[in-house]
Simulated assay, not measured.
Amino acid sequence: MPQMLKVTPTEHGVRLITLHRPEAMNALNTQLLGELAAELAAVEQDPGTRVVVLTGSRKAFAAGADINEMAERDLVGILNDPRVSHWQAISSFSKPLIAAVNGFALGGGCELVMHADIVIAGEDARFGQPEINLGIMPGAGGTQRLLRAVGKSLAMQMVLSGIAIDARHAQRAGLVSEVTQPELTIERAIELARLIAQKAPLAVRLAKEALLKAQDTDLASGLRFERHAFTVLAGTQDREEGICAFQEKRRANFTGQ
Rank of each mutant, 00 (worst) to 15 (best):
I196G: 05
G162Y: 02
M156L: 14
E23K: 14
R145Y: 08
M158V: 12
L154E: 14
Q181I: 03
D166I: 08
L32P: 03
L192N: 02
K95H: 14
V119F: 02
V52W: 12
R188P: 01
E187Q: 07
E39L: 01
S221C: 14
T236E: 12
E72R: 11
D46I: 02
R73P: 02
D81C: 11
P47V: 01
K59A: 08
G256P: 02
A164V: 00
A189I: 09
H12W: 07
M4Q: 13
G151K: 00
G56T: 03
K208W: 06
Q181D: 14
E39I: 03
D46R: 02
N102Q: 13
A220P: 00
A89N: 05
S92P: 02
E69L: 01
E131T: 11
L219V: 13
P82D: 10
R239K: 02
G64Y: 01
V119W: 00
V101P: 00
A38R: 01
N26E: 09
L175S: 01
L233E: 09
R145D: 03
S177N: 07
E44Q: 10
A125D: 00
L146M: 12
D124W: 11
I120A: 10
A100Q: 04
E209S: 14
T30Y: 04
N68E: 12
A220N: 08
A24S: 11
E178V: 10
L112A: 07
K249S: 15
I118Q: 00
S91H: 06
V159I: 08
R73H: 12
D66Q: 10
V176I: 12
K208R: 12
M114G: 06
R50G: 10
V204S: 09
H228Y: 07
Q181T: 04
Q45V: 00
V14C: 08
A99M: 11
E209D: 15
A99H: 06
Q181M: 05
I186E: 00
K249N: 15
I98S: 03
P130D: 14
Q129M: 13
L134D: 05
C244A: 15
G174Y: 13
S153Y: 11
R239P: 01
C244S: 15
